[in-house]
């Protein structure tokens, strides 16, 4: 589904991604772990089309299409969803209004008729139950005055409504207490399916106790330096990242 080959990206003059390779298949959950500054959020941003980053080399294919030449909204319509590390507050627009605009933009792109009020409400209610989201959050302006946990849950709720093929969760666990973390993880797990791939970007192993990945990758100084199964996350939790530093200088196997 997603194929990243030798991806290099920079912000202004600083090279942040220095040759990332990754293959994600439908139905899989991949975790990308790494310390602050390793390039995790840059990778998420490049995939979603954030324009602060300049891709200098490499390619990204999504279902065979060249992802890098699409605008952010086109990527979303093709089925990519980014759960933001810092969800944006938009006073003046209710969550429902915002979501309806998004759902209908995506449906239009897929050649489907726009939802009317009743159909949309039915969809929203169904997903709300799935994510255990309270109704009053829907009526409130997008993320305004939401707690950290509510914002992250709202991201997962949006994901449920927009039904993406590839979801990228950018440090969705940061700043959450254990109850909020479990609630978010339950939501993500409810959305696991054979047609959907999920990339979980995180600093800590903690989230991966609840969202169990098929593969774990370690990102360090802009490269994936080690990949393994879910046990790799536990190893990192125990040993930290230092023991992997030696591998950074070696050329990365392709």
């Amino acid at each position: 589904m997603l194929e990243i080959k030798n991806l290099h990206a920079r912000v202004e003059d600083k090279e942040i991604l220095r040759g990332v390779n990754l293959l994600v298949k439908a139905g899989e959950v991949h975790a990308i772990m790494g310390e602050n500054g390793s390039g995790k959020s840059t990778l998420a941003g490049v995939l979603a089309g954030r324009d602060a980053y300049e891709v200098t080399e490499g390619e990204v294919r999504f279902d065979g299409k060249n992802l890098l030449e699409l605008d952010p909204e086109e990527r979303a319509r093709e089925g990519i969803f980014l759960a933001f590390q810092y969800p944006v507050e938009i006073p003046g627009v209710s969550n429902t209004y915002f979501l309806k605009a998004a759902v209908n933009a995506i449906r239009q792109h897929r050649g489907l008729p726009e939802y009317d009020a009743r159909e949309f409400l039915k969809l929203v209610r169904e997903k709300m139950r799935l994510i255990h989201m309270s109704e009053d959050l829907l009526k409130r302006p997008v993320n305004e005055g939401f707690s950290g946990g509510e914002k992250k849950r709202n991201e997962i709720f949006q994901m449920a409504v927009l039904d993406p093929r590839l979801a990228i969760l950018d440090e969705t666990d940061s700043g959450l207490d254990i109850d909020a973390l479990k609630a978010v993880a339950d939501g993500v797990n409810a959305l696991r399916s054979p047609d959907r791939a999920i990339i979980v970007i995180t600093h800590y192993q903690r989230l991966l106790n609840y969202i169990v990945p098929d593969q774990v990758h370690v990102l360090m100084r802009g490269r994936i330096v080690k990949s393994g199964g879910k046990e790799l996350a536990l190893e990192l939790e125990e040993k930290g990242y230092k023991w992997l530093e030696a591998s950074v200088r070696e050329p990365q196997p392709v």
Binding site: D51, D71, F84, V93, L99, A101, A102, V103, A105
Partner: peptide
């Protein structure tokens, strides 16, 4: 905020209006 809306599938012109 513009990027947030676009990342949800809303086109640039509509995101600006919204």
């Amino acid at each position: 905020s513009l990027f947030y809306l676009r990342s949800r599938g809303v086109g640039l012109a509509e995101a600006r209006s919204l």
